Amino acid sequence: MTERLRTFGRTKSRTLSDRQQALVDELLPKIGIPASGVVNPAILLPGKTKHILEIGFGGGEHLSGQAARHPDTGYIGVEPFINGVAKALTQIEESGLENVRLHEGDAREVMERMPDQCLDRIFLLFPDPWPKVRHAKRRFVQDETAAEFARLLKPGGHLRVATDVKAYADHALWILRQTPGLEWQARSAADWRQPPADHLTTRYETKQLGDCAPVFFDFENGNSPRIRL
C-alpha cells in the first residue's frame, strides 16, 4: 500500500515538561478517541447540543477557548504535534473542561472513521501552508478532504478555513468552491477579510508569519432543508 503523504511537518520540538508528560500519560488516555472503530461524536460526547471538529488545533487556544464559551457543545480536536497536544491538555485541566476530546495524529484518519452528517461545524485554522508549488499536494485541503467536509457536516453545518498564506488561500478557495454541497457564505470582501465575530485570535496568528493578512472562508453545507412558503 502506498504511504499517504503527510500534510504536516514536525510532530515534536522541545522535550515536554514533567507536568506536560504526566498529562499526556494520564489525561490524554481518558479524553482521547478510540484507536480504532467508528468515531461518533454523539457517543463520545453525549448530551451535547452540537458537535464540532477542529483540525490541527496547534497550541489549543482556539479549541479550549471555544469549549469554555460553549459548555453545551462537544469538541473534538486533532493535532499531530505532541507539544501542541500537551499545551491543550494543560488548558483543559486548568479550565476544568469536560466537553473536549483529543487525538494526537492525522485528522484524515479520524474523519474517515466518522459517520455521515455527524458534525455541526469544522474548523481548519492556519494549517501547515506548504507554500511552494511542488509541495501543494501536501496541503490539507484537497479534493478528497473537501468531499469529506461535505460528507461530515449536517445539513446547514458550517466549515471555516483560515490562512495567512496567499498560495494556500487561492488553493483552498478554488477547491472548496468546486466541492458539491459546500456553499461559500461571503457576500462582500469584508466577509472574508475581517475576522468573524466568533473568532478567537491565537498567539500564532498575532505573530504574522504568513505573507498576507489572515483570510477567513466560511462555507455552509448547502443540503440544509428549505422551508416552503
Score class of each variant (00 low, 15 high):
V141R: 00
I122Q: 00
Q117T: 06
L125H: 14
E104F: 00
V133F: 12
R138H: 12
C118S: 07
L124P: 02
R121Y: 14
V141I: 08
V133R: 14
A136G: 09
R134N: 10
K132C: 10
P131S: 15
A107R: 01
E112N: 10
E104W: 05
Q142C: 02
L124Y: 02
D120P: 06
R139F: 02
P115Y: 10
K137C: 11
D120W: 03
F126V: 05
Q142I: 01
G105L: 05
L124C: 07
V141S: 01
I122M: 02
V141F: 00
L124R: 05
M111K: 02
R121H: 13
R134A: 09
E112I: 11
D143M: 04
D143K: 15
W130I: 09
R139S: 03
Q142P: 02
F123S: 07
H103W: 03
H103R: 07
M111V: 05
F140Y: 15
P131E: 14
C118R: 03
D128I: 07
R134F: 05
E109W: 10
F123I: 09
D128M: 07
L119E: 05
E112D: 13
C118K: 01
R134Y: 08
F126D: 00
D120T: 00
R139C: 03
E109V: 13
R134C: 08
D143T: 15
V133W: 07
H135V: 09
F123G: 10
Q142D: 13
R113D: 04
R108F: 09
R121L: 12
D116S: 09
F140P: 00
L124I: 13
V133L: 12
R138K: 14
H103E: 03
A136W: 04
L124E: 01
D128C: 11
L125A: 10
R113M: 11
P115T: 03
L125E: 11
R138A: 08
P129M: 13
D128W: 10
D116F: 12
R113Q: 04
D128N: 14
V133M: 10
V141K: 01
K132Q: 07
K132M: 14
V110Q: 04
M114C: 12
L119T: 06
C118F: 01
K137R: 09
L102I: 06
W130E: 04
E144M: 11
R108Q: 10
R121P: 08
E104K: 11
F123E: 12
V133N: 09
D120I: 03
F126A: 06
H103Q: 06
V141Q: 04
D106Y: 13
I122S: 00
R139D: 01
A136I: 07
L124G: 00
G105A: 13
Q117E: 14
A107W: 02
D120R: 01
E109L: 12
Q142G: 08
A107L: 01
K132D: 10
G105M: 06
E112A: 15
P131N: 15
L102E: 03
E144I: 13
E109S: 09
F123D: 10
E144V: 10
L119G: 04
I122K: 00
W130R: 06
R134T: 08
K132R: 13
